[in-house]
Amino acid sequence: MGVEDKFPEVVTSRLTDLVGWARKNSLWPMPLGLSCCAIEMMATVGPRFDLSRFGAEVFRFSPRQSDVMIVAGTLTWKMASVARRIYDQMPDPKWVIAMGVCASSGGLYRNYAVVPGVDRILPVDVYTMGCPPRPDTLIRAVMELQKKIDELAIDGRRPREPVFVQ
């Protein structure tokens, strides 16, 4: 009945599946390296751990070209407005990884100067434990984000409609 019946060599797909597949395998991170987590982030793109195996090695230092913001380190209230402005400059759809306990919850710093979790100012998609997290943990966070993108529709917000096979 469908195209695949007439032409068995043709594979059909939905546009939302195709776009989601392309998005999740070509994440361009915006590194917001604020403290020691940034060192582990640099190690992650190095040859030993090699984040490019997941298509996410192109660290763009311009938010206009980035998909995912990796907040790596202690975010102070003084830096918070800058972080929010950088996030606002990123084109949609965009995601945020909170790397390490400082970015996720404030961590060790329970004081007036540090933002208790970047989810106060940014919509965080994946939280990461560790002080700092090992490169393995950041890779795991990227994989978790890929899983999340795979569940989203083409606008990057709504959940993707399931496929009904008759």
């Binding site: 994946v126 939280y127 560790g130 966070a141 999340k148």
Partner: peptide
């Protein structure tokens, strides 16, 4: 176990 990630803070 050293790689713990999640999408919600309650999970941690």
């Amino acid at each position: 176990d050293y790689e713990v990630v999640g999408r919600r803070r309650e999970d941690f």
